[in-house]
Amino acid sequence: MDLIVTDAGHIDRAVIEDYALDAAWGADENDFELTVDRMLEPGSYVYADGSELGGVIDSLRDRLERDGSTLTYGGRTWHGILANKILAPDTGQNYLVVSGKASTVIGMIVNRVGLAPLFQAVAPPPGIGDPDIKTYQVARYTDCYAGLRAMCAANGLKLRLAYRSGHVEIWAEPAAHYGDSIDSDLIDFDATRTWLRVNHLIGLGKGELANRTVVHWYADKDGNVSQNQSLHGTEEIAQTYDYSNAESDELDAKTRDKLIGMQSQGDVKVTVRDGTEIEMDVGDTVAAHDQITGITVQATVTKKITKTKNGSTSIDYEAS
């Protein structure tokens, strides 16, 4: 895979074939290291045309040894550039609330954080259609990349990026699910099954002492959340949720949502090793099955790791 490098003015200057690249994006990292035997300017772009692989050069490590210098450049992927921007509500508003066609919403957000015209919101590839974003409340002061991913996930979508013609195209499309289509020999998973979870959440809101707003929400053995308690004694696992500035209605809704989010049946980490012919995206789901225990796990791809050395490229995935 050839890489194209620009100058600091982002004009294409060279195609490089001999390099080592380690890049990751998703839940964390969102950066890259590029080792190449040439000088590159700070602020230059490196990218694989038509793909999401690429970013901006921010640093240089020069290591001098007997056989010469090794130049290793560090930088942010396109995803990391998004992650370095914060989504804040408008002045006087509690939250940023969005809805509409995905391309319109994403375009508004990209403009809001000052990343246009480098990032350009587009409709998905032909045949997919521009999906709708239902009314979505963006978390306060979240980073732009996390906020966009969360918004997409809430609508059954995934965020896609690709560098083309001097711009990073960005769009949303339906998340894909991969189960039996992936060889189980290529999947490792570490699963923890939890039978009893937090099932009583006490929300603590506005006020002091006896005047403090308090709400109670309960979950049953199946994870269904209501205000009716069904688990008592040793089966009751209670916690508090401190949301000190919330009025009664907001505290009630937030405490309920918090308890729903705590009803996972366990934790799972899935690693899909290089070798699958399917290329997945952050936001897709993958399933794995252990023949011995009978445990089947389904996880969402949270990180994509691509490495290139000596002309050979591998892609690994992490899911949870």
Rank of each mutant, 00 (worst) to 15 (best):
residue 226 S to H: 11
residue 284 D to S: 07
residue 187 I to G: 01
residue 103 S to D: 13
residue 1 M to F: 00
residue 74 G to Q: 10
residue 319 A to E: 02
residue 94 N to W: 00
residue 185 D to L: 08
residue 198 V to W: 01
residue 296 T to I: 05
residue 291 Q to A: 15
residue 151 M to Y: 06
residue 80 G to S: 07
residue 291 Q to V: 08
residue 18 D to I: 14
residue 107 G to M: 03
residue 251 L to F: 02
residue 88 A to K: 13
residue 256 R to G: 00
residue 177 H to K: 14
residue 217 W to T: 02
residue 226 S to V: 03
residue 184 S to C: 05
residue 266 G to V: 05
residue 170 I to Y: 05
residue 243 Y to Q: 07
residue 231 L to Q: 15
residue 230 S to T: 14
residue 167 H to N: 14
residue 152 C to H: 15
residue 174 P to M: 05
residue 136 Y to T: 12
residue 29 E to P: 03
residue 319 A to K: 11
residue 153 A to Y: 13
residue 222 D to E: 10
residue 69 S to L: 08
residue 223 G to L: 03
residue 132 D to W: 13
residue 15 V to Y: 04
residue 278 I to W: 09
residue 114 G to A: 03
residue 313 T to P: 11
residue 229 Q to W: 03
residue 82 L to I: 06
residue 284 D to G: 07
residue 66 R to H: 09
residue 215 V to C: 03
residue 2 D to H: 10
residue 63 R to Y: 01
residue 176 A to S: 14
residue 78 W to F: 15
residue 131 P to H: 09
residue 162 A to C: 05
residue 132 D to H: 08
residue 249 D to F: 00
residue 69 S to G: 08
residue 250 E to C: 00
residue 65 E to N: 06
residue 85 K to A: 05
residue 44 S to K: 12
residue 79 H to V: 01
residue 38 R to Y: 01
residue 212 R to D: 01
residue 1 M to N: 10
residue 280 M to F: 06
residue 240 T to A: 04
residue 90 D to P: 00
residue 44 S to A: 15
residue 105 V to Q: 08
residue 244 S to L: 14
residue 309 K to M: 06
residue 218 Y to A: 00
residue 116 A to N: 10
residue 16 I to M: 07
residue 158 K to I: 00
residue 317 Y to M: 02
residue 156 G to T: 09
residue 43 G to V: 01
residue 8 A to C: 09
residue 271 T to H: 11
residue 309 K to E: 06
residue 285 T to M: 04
residue 230 S to L: 05
residue 157 L to Y: 08
residue 312 S to K: 11
residue 102 A to N: 08
residue 313 T to I: 02
residue 293 T to I: 07
residue 171 W to T: 03
residue 208 E to N: 14
residue 284 D to N: 09
residue 237 I to P: 00
residue 102 A to Q: 08
residue 217 W to R: 11
residue 253 A to Y: 09
residue 208 E to Y: 00
residue 100 G to S: 06
residue 246 A to K: 15
residue 181 S to N: 12
residue 117 P to L: 06
residue 151 M to A: 04
residue 262 M to E: 13
residue 7 D to N: 15
residue 31 D to T: 12
residue 156 G to Y: 08
residue 200 H to Q: 14
residue 14 A to T: 11
residue 252 D to R: 15
residue 133 I to S: 04
residue 239 Q to G: 11
residue 22 D to N: 15
residue 152 C to P: 08
residue 43 G to E: 04
residue 228 N to Y: 14
residue 148 L to C: 09
residue 286 V to P: 04
residue 269 K to M: 01
residue 77 T to Q: 07
residue 148 L to E: 07
residue 124 P to C: 04
residue 263 Q to S: 04
residue 33 E to I: 02
residue 241 Y to P: 03
residue 251 L to N: 02
residue 97 V to R: 13
residue 8 A to H: 07
residue 211 N to A: 14
residue 63 R to D: 02
residue 190 D to W: 05
residue 59 S to E: 10
residue 94 N to E: 12
residue 23 A to N: 07
residue 228 N to M: 11
residue 200 H to V: 03
residue 6 T to C: 00
residue 107 G to D: 02
residue 274 D to Q: 10
residue 156 G to D: 11
residue 71 L to R: 15
residue 136 Y to S: 01
residue 196 L to Y: 06
residue 60 L to V: 12
residue 71 L to M: 12
residue 96 L to H: 04
residue 144 C to M: 13
residue 170 I to E: 02
residue 208 E to M: 05
residue 108 M to Y: 10
residue 267 D to K: 15
residue 42 P to N: 10
residue 84 N to K: 12
residue 24 A to P: 01
